[in-house]
């Protein structure tokens, strides 16, 4: 798959169909995002790792791709994405930071092992060009752990989990959808500066709620957590509720509006068949 992807990207660059290819580069055994502007550099291009290509630049609070688009407006950039990268990109586009029309989205599918490692229910992008679609593991089985607990057991479980929190903000910083200029997680009314661990469950409640209709289930927050708090347990419970209650799945269509921020009734959405 990798050879084909490199060849395809080299074609795009040499025929000047795109100004740059944004993807992952492996160097000295480490993989990081890189903007390829010359076809000869594409030997370093790699895929199939857990490294995301969409994230927010801080302190600018700007998505990386939106930063590219600001630097060279109107120019076509090819982006190599997995399912989660594409969904993250769409969520940011919904909020007006990315112009999807100016992107050539090249998707590749993750294999079953990767999907299992990320608990990813949709391990392939809509713009699938390389690789075979595989079925992701079921969310139902994953969240059963929390669903089957009593309310009191859940409280005890989360108190223990959140007592480990060191307030590194890694869950927010690594989130591809967290682009708010003013972050409620930094609000002293919810988690005063200097208190560790943050009060149960204020600090986390803010993040959970605010992402309930935009979480794309990429698992970046869990990967970034130095204390291994299983944040995706709650995120998946909420995603399910948003699907059932508001008939909405995040990351599907860049033209859709996030339901909790729009005044459209859930019923109307269902009737429109979205």
């Amino acid at each position: 798959m990798l050879t084909e992807i490199r060849k395809h990207c080299a074609d795009l660059l040499t025929r000047k169909q795109v100004a740059a290819v944004y993807g992952l580069r492996e160097r000295d055994g480490h993989t990081a995002p890189y903007l390829f502007t010359r076809a000869e550099d594409l030997d370093g291009l790699t895929v199939g790792t857990k490294v995301p290509v969409t994230f927010t630049l801080r302190p600018a609070k700007k998505n990386i791709i939106s930063a590219f688009q600001e630097k060279c407006p109107g120019q076509k950039i090819a982006v190599l994405v997995r399912g989660c990268d594409e969904r993250g990109l769409y969520e940011v586009a919904k909020r007006g930071q990315i112009q999807v029309a100016d992107l050539a989205i090249i998707g590749y599918a993750c294999d079953a092992d990767q999907a299992r490692a990320c608990h990813c229910p949709r391990p392939h992008p809509q713009n699938l060009k390389f690789g075979e679609k595989v079925q992701g593991p079921s969310n139902e089985a994953f969240i059963a752990k929390i669903v089957n607990m009593s309310v009191a057991e859940r409280e005890a479980f989360w108190r223990a989990q959140f007592s480990k929190c060191i307030k590194c903000y890694g869950c927010r910083n690594s989130c591809p959808v967290c682009i708010c200029k003013e972050c409620w997680m930094e609000n002293d009314a919810f988690s005063p500066t200097g208190w560790l661990p943050p009060d149960f469950p204020m600090f986390h409640f803010v993040h959970f709620y605010h992402l309930s209709d935009s979480c794309i289930e990429c698992g970046a927050c869990v990967d970034a957590c130095p204390m291994d708090i299983p944040l995706n347990l709650i995120r998946k419970v909420l995603s399910k509720k948003v699907q059932e209650e508001l008939f909405y799945t995040a990351g599907q269509d860049p033209e859709e509006k996030p339901p909790l921020a729009s005044r459209e009734e859930a019923k109307e959405r269902l009737e429109k068949g979205i």
Partner: peptide
């Protein structure tokens, strides 16, 4: 305000679900 309570109607079930999942009745 025409549609203010439409927002409320969508928010509260999600809030309740989150509270429940966190172990708050």
């Amino acid at each position: 305000y025409q549609t203010g309570n439409h927002l409320t109607k969508k928010r509260i079930p999600i809030t309740r679900e989150l509270l429940g999942a966190l172990g708050i009745d």
